[in-house]
Simulated assay, not measured.
Amino acid sequence: MSALGHPVLQTAPDAGSRFSDGVPYRFEIPSVEGPGVLEAVVAEADRLGVPVARVSQGSGVMMLSDAEITRMARIGAERGIEVNLFLGPRAAWDTGGQAKVTQAVGAAARGNAMVAACVADALRACSLGIRSLLVGDLGALEVLRRLKEDGTLPARLVLKTSVLMPLTNGPTAAIYERLGATTVNVGTDLTVPHLAEIRAATGLPIDLYLEVPDDQGGFVRFYEVADIVRAAAPVYLKMGLRNAPNIYPSGGHLGAVPAELGRERVRRAALVRELIERLDPELTKAPAGGRPRDLGVPEV
Score class of each variant (00 low, 15 high):
Gly217Phe: 05
Tyr176Cys: 09
Asp214Arg: 07
Arg156His: 14
Ala201Gly: 07
Leu275Trp: 12
Val212Ser: 02
Val41Cys: 07
Pro298Cys: 08
Leu275Pro: 03
Val266Asn: 07
Arg110Lys: 11
Thr172Gly: 14
Leu159Met: 05
Val32Ser: 03
Asp280Met: 12
Met114Tyr: 11
Asn84Phe: 01
Asp137Cys: 11
Glu142Tyr: 06
Ala12Lys: 12
Tyr176Ala: 15
Arg74Asp: 13
Arg47Gly: 01
Ala43Asn: 03
Val135Pro: 00
Glu44Pro: 01
Gly252Tyr: 12
Arg124Pro: 04
Pro205Leu: 05
Ser56Tyr: 03
Thr152Cys: 01
Glu299Lys: 11
Asp21Val: 04
Arg278Glu: 13
Ala91Lys: 06
Gly97Asp: 13
Ala174Ser: 14
Val235Ile: 15
Ala286Lys: 15
Phe19Met: 10
Ile247Ala: 09
Val158Phe: 01
Leu87Pro: 01
Val220His: 10
Thr70Val: 08
Val52Asp: 01
Val61His: 05
His253Trp: 15
Val257Trp: 06
Ala107Ile: 07
Leu157Ala: 09
Val42Leu: 14
Thr182Phe: 02
Arg90Trp: 01
Ala201Asn: 08
Asp66Gly: 03
Ala53Gln: 09
Ala181Gly: 09
Leu133His: 07
Val300Phe: 03
Leu48Glu: 08
Leu210Gly: 11
Gly251Ser: 10
Tyr236Ile: 02
Gly97Glu: 15
Pro245Met: 13
His253Leu: 09
Asp214Phe: 04
Glu39Phe: 00
Arg146Asn: 13
Gly22Asn: 05
His253Pro: 00
Asn185Ile: 05
Met72Trp: 02
Leu85Asp: 00
Arg199Ile: 05
Met239Gln: 13
Asp294Ala: 07
Ala104Asp: 13
Ala73Val: 04
Leu254Gln: 14
Ala122Glu: 10
Asp214Asn: 14
Ala45Lys: 01
Ala270Leu: 03
Gly88Leu: 01
Ala12Asp: 08
Leu159Arg: 10
Leu85Lys: 03
Ala15Phe: 05
Met239Asn: 03
Leu254Asn: 12
Gly97Phe: 12
Arg18Pro: 00
Asn169Glu: 15
Thr102Cys: 02
Pro249Ala: 13
